[in-house]
């Protein structure tokens, strides 16, 4: 009864929000050595929105993402996907790692990489059938890489490699897409292609979370921001949360003056609009 009232008033409790969230993190602490890389972080991602994880270098952005995915074991904390442990919801999640994290000399072709995304469907010994290939080609088509299907992955440019990674994530057919710096070191055309695909996913009701480092594009690309510097700094819609004060807190004065000025311009420009 009370719960229902609360919902009607638009003031959901924390427990309710966590259950409904495609990715909710509570008290997450991860450490590589003595010093924690991520300390006691709470994060609740809104379904059907695009969230940017923002913070200075070494702030624990990638670590947060990897711990949320279960790639890294946290010291403490819980991660839930739609209210369930992440391990039970693997087929709901697609992941695009940092491009530099894999061996691009690996003997495999573009189409084979995309087919890796269908492991959840194919299982250990399932045959790759024409419909799987057609599905993989369709994913490549969506990122504009269909013409490169039989190329060896090492022959691609950085931007093309990133698009292939995105196609592999699309092949996973997930509801939640987690991307680690998808725009790092890619050309402008690729950046446009990727953001178009991601916005398309969002408009289709999917949830997108990306570690992002280019502060000047946050307002154009994302709905929500999550600011982190080892600890969570702020979380919420871009309009109310992506503010100069929050950025100064997150970056702790490490934001260069020129960068801050340029940013102030985009901030004021957007609010005047």
């Amino acid at each position: 009864m009370n719960l229902k009232l609360a919902r009607d008033n638009g003031a959901a409790t924390d427990a309710e929000r966590r259950l409904a969230s495609p990715l909710a993190v509570r008290g997450l602490t991860v450490s590589y050595g003595q010093k924690p890389a991520v300390f006691s972080v709470d994060m609740t991602v809104r379904a059907g929105h695009m969230t940017a994880i923002i913070g200075p270098n070494g702030a624990g952005k990638s670590t947060l993402l990897k711990a949320a995915l279960g790639i890294l074991k946290p010291l403490a904390g819980t991660v839930t996907v739609l209210g369930q442990p992440v391990a039970w919801r693997r087929d709901h999640i697609a992941y695009v790692p940092q491009r530099a994290s894999v061996d691009w000399d690996f003997p495999t072709r573009v189409i084979d990489v995309v087919l890796m995304g269908m492991y959840g469907q194919l299982g250990l010994l399932g045959r790759v059938r024409p419909r799987h290939r057609a599905q993989a080609m369709d994913c490549l088509e969506r990122v504009g890489m269909a013409d490169f299907a039989t190329r060896q992955i090492g022959q691609l440019s950085g931007g093309q490699q990133q698009r292939v990674f995105l196609a592999r994530a699309l092949a996973q057919g997930a509801d939640l897409y987690l991307l680690d710096e998808p725009f790092a070191g890619v050309d402008a055309a690729t950046e446009q292609a990727i953001i178009t695909v991601l916005k398309g996913l969002r408009d289709a009701g999917k949830t997108v979370v990306a570690v992002h480092h280019d502060l000047s594009t946050v307002r154009d690309y994302f709905d929500d921001v999550f600011l982190i510097n080892t600890q969570a700094v702020a979380e919420g819609p871009v309009e109310t949360t992506f503010t100069q004060e929050n950025l100064q807190t997150a970056y702790g004065g490490r934001l260069a003056g020129a960068q801050m000025d340029a940013l102030a311009e985009t901030l004021s420009g957007t609010s005047a609009r």
Binding site: K66, L69, G70, I71, A87, R90, I93, Y95, P97, S101, V102, D103, F106, T108, V113, M116, Y119, G120, R168
Partner: peptide, 14 residues
């Protein structure tokens, strides 16, 4: 094959 190419991705698939 998947874990040799991309271990992190392999782990996200369980």
């Amino acid at each position: 094959k998947i874990s040799t190419f991309d271990e992190g991705f392999a782990r996200t698939m369980g």
